[in-house]
Computed example of a mutant assay.
Amino acid sequence: MKKVVTFGELMLRLAPQGYTRFVQTDLFEATYGGGEANVAVSLANMGLDVSFVTKLPKHEVGQAAVNSLRRFGVDTTEIVRGGERVGIYYLEKGASQRPSRVIYDRADSAIARASIGEFNWDSIFQEAGWFHFTGITPALSDNAAKLCLAACKAAREKGITVSFDLNYRKNLWSSEKAQEVITELTPYIDICIANEEDAEKVFGIKAENTDIAGGKLNHEGYKQVAEKMVRSYGFKMVATTLRESISANDNKWSAMLYDGKDFYFSKKYDIHIVDRVGGGDSFGAGLIYAGMNRYSQQESIEFAVAASCLKHSIEGDYNHASLEEIRVLAAGDGSGRVQR
């Protein structure tokens, strides 16, 4: 089986322990994560060959970030070393009706200032069958947007499947800038992944009769959104995660897949959240694994949602769920009973 390549920023995550607030804490826990890196770790844990591409400084913190991927078997040989900054994000976990908060400190990070000439996509894509990135990466800088476009063009020339998670971040760019940049990338994207807000913020396509803040989602509205995305941008598939927020701790979680002909909805999970960061990334990884292994459309959406459901129970950005755990949950065993 061919390998998967993911491209993006790997950041240092600093978070107060437990549910302590930023203004309370005198201790931050340091781990690493980032959208495309999270996907790479998930896929490696599922047994696929996966390579993560980025740029990181040569100093010890940059090396620690690289090491955080190596422990899972992610190929880091194509990571460019240089620059001065590892991007940082601060995470305050929400509880009950208090939402989680993220503060970014990633301006002028190594990958944001990287240039096209530093990445040899012919070499990077050797033996690759799939390329994945997210809307976070082109949001980092004009240079990063150009890198994403160059990667997409190279992948298309080699016949590599390209998946893209919209992942709109209002703290990084405006809706207008996102639409301008991402529209240039869409001709090269085969599979587009979005949550309940992304299509509206990036493409101006809104699901009717849906109240995201109130946790009320309309399936028919999301069918219309997916159809419009396929018709307007030529995607082969659109996958939409459907999060119904009861509180910061408790959500209902499901998803929809549209292949241009039919709609496929997953079962719905009632999840109690330990850490929601990386939930969407584990969903994307599940879709990629299913696609690489030629799962049916219904099997694909069930597997992806199960992978993401499990991630919500795991601390940190990375999904430590095993392939067998995901398969068992996707097959219907969500009892949580002790295994012994």
Rank of each mutant, 00 (worst) to 15 (best):
T161V: 15
A95N: 12
Y188N: 04
I124G: 04
A65P: 00
A114D: 00
G334W: 04
L323G: 05
T25E: 02
A255S: 15
A155S: 14
V4W: 01
A304P: 03
I103G: 10
G35Q: 04
G221T: 08
S232C: 12
G82F: 15
L166T: 12
L56I: 11
E299A: 14
A194R: 00
V66G: 02
Y89S: 11
F52Y: 15
K261W: 07
E36R: 03
T25K: 01
R81L: 15
H219L: 14
K236A: 13
S109K: 07
N251T: 07
L140V: 10
I212Q: 12
A207G: 08
I124F: 07
V328T: 11
N195Y: 05
Y222L: 09
G117F: 04
V102L: 09
K170W: 11
D259V: 07
R85G: 00
S313W: 09
G35A: 15
F22M: 06
E92V: 03
K268L: 03
P187L: 10
N251S: 10
I116R: 13
G260C: 14
R85N: 02
L27K: 14
G284K: 02
T25S: 14
S232W: 02
N251F: 09
P57I: 03
T161N: 06
S322L: 12
D317K: 07
S254M: 05
V162K: 00
C192M: 14
I189K: 03
K236S: 14
D270Q: 14
F125K: 08
T20G: 08
G34C: 08
G336E: 13
G117C: 09
F22L: 11
N319V: 05
E9R: 08
G159W: 07
K223W: 04
